[in-house]
């Protein structure tokens, strides 16, 4: 075991997989040994693997994604870093219209083992916090990982690199150089589509990913002091979504709070909420609350940016809203 940050864990996952599998290479802007990637997102990889496997590109996101798809079709297992999720749109048509459809439309003859890495999230960086996760999560055929801690980040990255499908891998900037965590040294994966109960409870289920999962844990801690027992479920990947684990939890608590750092409109977690309502409403009473980003473009000034997004307080308020009245 070693104590790693989120960023170190992601890189360790990539590095181990690149050592194991010669077919993996990494495309990106400024990911070489001089700059080591935005926010050191490729630190040490260029020095270790050299320019034939850590390949710097011009600023050409559409070509980068398209080239990743092409190389994947030809037997490689590329990683393409788009620096920030804000730039996902530039690579969206080759990814969503073509790559996502290939396995199904080719009747299972062609697969696209491709990992797209993006930084995102309100945090230390000025701007570039948008995630646009709904764009990729709403198209069948793309998987989406959103880890909340170093151990999951490494395990999910390894799973993504062994997956035969396009995976968009979200790396949260506020978690990136944050808290360290014990990360196993032996080979392990965190499978895509497997939620984890981060904290057990019996009164209410809180579902959240990434930074919001960390906030939910803090909220749960606070609520415990008030005599409310919250269970925090982190889906870890939003596609595929582990509905079953959430359903089991909500069947027990009969109360669900869904927290998203993104807009509630079109949020993949809203689909989850609908599925849970579909499955569990109609038996005993079921209470649901959603917490998300204000439905406007993200404001810039720090006090506005903070107030527009969910935090421990808005999460605990939502929990109280649906626990008090019953």
């Amino acid at each position: 075991m070693s104590q790693l940050t989120f960023q170190e864990a992601v890189i360790q996952g990539i590095s181990e997989e690149m050592e194991r599998d010669e077919r993996i290479f990494h495309l990106g802007q400024d990911i070489g040994p001089i700059y080591n990637g935005a926010m050191h997102s490729a630190k040490g990889l260029g020095a270790k693997f050299g320019p034939r496997r850590i390949i710097q590109t011009p600023i050409s996101e559409s070509a980068m994604v398209g080239a990743g798809i092409g190389a994947a079709l030809a037997g490689r297992r590329p990683i393409v870093q788009l620096m920030f999720a804000e730039f996902l749109g530039l690579g969206l048509t080759p990814l969503a219209c073509d790559a996502a459809a290939m396995w199904y439309k080719s009747d299972g003859t062609v697969s696209v083992p491709l990992v797209i890495r993006v930084l995102y999230g309100a945090g230390p960086h000025r701007g570039h916090s948008e995630d646009y996760q709904a764009w990729v999560a709403s198209v069948p055929g793309i998987k989406v990982a959103m880890p909340s801690c170093p151990r999951d980040a490494k395990g999910l990255m390894k799973a993504a690199l062994r997956d035969n499908n396009p995976v968009v891998f979200f790396e949260h900037m506020a978690l990136y150089h944050g808290a360290r965590q014990e990360v196993p040294e032996e080979d392990y994966v965190v499978p895509l589509g497997e939620a984890e109960i981060k904290s057990e409870g019996s009164d209410v289920t809180i579902v959240a990913t990434a930074l919001m999962a960390q906030q939910a844990l803090k909220a749960a801690e606070q609520l415990r002091g008030e005599g409310i027992s919250a269970e925090v479920v982190d889906p870890r990947s939003i596609v595929p979504m582990d509905i079953e684990t959430v359903r089991r939890s909500v069947a027990k608590t009969r109360r669900l709070v869904v927290v998203s750092e993104s807009w509630k409109t079109g949020d993949p977690l809203s689909d989850l909420t609908a599925s849970i309502a579909e499955d569990l409403a109609g038996n005993a009473p079921l209470k649901i609350a959603r917490v998300g980003l204000q439905n406007t473009p993200r404001p810039f000034a720090m006090p506005l940016a903070r107030a527009a997004m969910p935090n421990v307080q808005t999460i605990t308020e939502a929990v109280r809203r649906i626990t008090e009245s019953s």
Partner: peptide
């Protein structure tokens, strides 16, 4: 001054 919350304009 920093903007107050009235600038949020939901």
């Amino acid at each position: 001054p920093d903007p107050g919350l009235e600038v949020l304009g939901p």
